[in-house]
């Protein structure tokens, strides 16, 4: 008789959900809820980027380009439905389908970009993906049908805490299960030594394209949720600097560690908000001119310090227990 393993990931997610519901009763206000939601969106973006940059060891700098595709595609679909009949509750199935459509569109873009570029390595790949990310953004900036430089406005606020949490859970679970499977082993081998991976019979190009597509898919979902949280999809939300922010999360958490990405997504989202509000209250208190971009200065400094003094990030490549699937015969 086999006892099924406890699904710890699900337990933790359910616990988090219940805790937030309870806290809502005792003054966990909308601002805090927004930060929780934003953190979860960044969990999706960081974990999906970690599949590309950490697990299979490529270097993408254009992750927000994929998020933009997801945001615009899903946003266009839901605004259309919403215009036809503005009954929010009835539209959740449509919303989920729109998100998936956005993810699929992002994955297709990922494949289209991946085929010509993935034979490039390291810093070259970084620059080319950066370029593609910017091209995607420029394209949206020039399509009038989605608002051009004004952005796509009037997106319904469908991204509730429960929906975002559910998608974050699915993203983490799927990427973890792949990373912990034979496919994940093949990807890690590619990261460790691409030539040797090739010469044990791994289709390295095929895997890179698949990983890129899968990472782009979840980034597209993340982008869709983001747009339905802020109720707008705007070209500036998906600029290079935001791709770097997600990159910082991946490296701060430990490249190759999904646990690290989840923790860093929460920690850095909260830290950003603290810095912003901390600096602005310090500004009004002391009259010092320290608003605006100072939090980005600190952010940049953080990235440099991580690289100089803790290159492996918070977790290195280690994973928390609940992120590891034990093998059948070792107990």
């Amino acid at each position: 008789m086999k006892i099924p393993r406890t699904p710890w990931l699900l337990v933790v997610a359910a616990g988090f959900w219940a805790a937030v519901q309870l806290l809502r009763l005792v003054g966990f206000n909308d601002y805090y809820l927004f930060i929780a939601n934003l953190s979860l969106v960044y969990v999706i973006l960081a974990v999906s980027l970690n599949l590309i940059n950490g697990i299979i060891g490529q270097f993408s700098l254009g992750h927000m380009g994929f998020a933009a595709v997801g945001a615009y595609v899903s946003g266009s679909i839901t605004t259309l439905i919403f215009k036809l009949s503005p009954n929010v509750a009835a539209h959740y199935p449509g919303f989920v389908l729109a998100l998936v459509a956005g993810g699929v569109a992002a994955a297709l873009v990922g494949v289209a970009i991946g085929f010509p570029t993935l034979r490039l390595k390291g810093d070259y790949l970084a620059i080319v993906t950066l370029g593609f990310g910017e091209i995607i953004r420029t394209v949206f900036n020039n399509i009038d049908a989605v608002g051009g430089p004004r952005g796509l406005l009037g997106i319904p606020k469908f991204s509730t805490f429960t929906v975002i949490l559910a998608f974050a859970l699915i993203t983490v679970a799927v990427i973890r299960n792949i990373a912990e499977s034979a496919h994940g082993r093949n990807m890690i081998a590619i990261r460790e030594n691409e030539l040797a991976a090739d010469l044990v019979g791994i289709d390295t190009t095929g895997y890179k394209v698949k990983a890129f597509a899968l990472g782009a898919f979840f980034a597209g979902i993340g982008g869709g949720l983001y747009a339905h949280l802020l109720q707008i999809a705007h070209p500036t939300q998906f600029g290079f600097i935001y791709s770097v922010q997600v990159l910082i999360m991946v490296y701060a958490g430990g490249v190759g560690s999904l646990t690290g990405s989840v923790l860093a997504a929460f920690a850095l989202t909260i830290l950003t908000q603290l810095l912003k509000s901390g600096l602005s209250s310090l500004k009004s208190l002391t009259g010092l001119p320290i608003g605006g971009d100072w939090y980005m200065v600190l952010y940049a400094l953080l990235l440099i310090l991580i690289m100089l003094y803790r290159t492996e990030g918070l977790m290195g490549t280690r994973e928390a227990k609940l992120m590891v699937i034990p093998e059948e015969d070792d107990k």
Binding site: R185, I188, N193, L195, A197, G201
Partner: peptide
């Protein structure tokens, strides 16, 4: 040598079963 350094010895061998 071109081993997969951060992988376990077992995984190094197991990953080569691609046929």
């Amino acid at each position: 040598l071109r081993i997969f350094g951060s992988m376990s010895v077992l995984d190094n061998v197991r990953v080569a079963r691609q046929y």
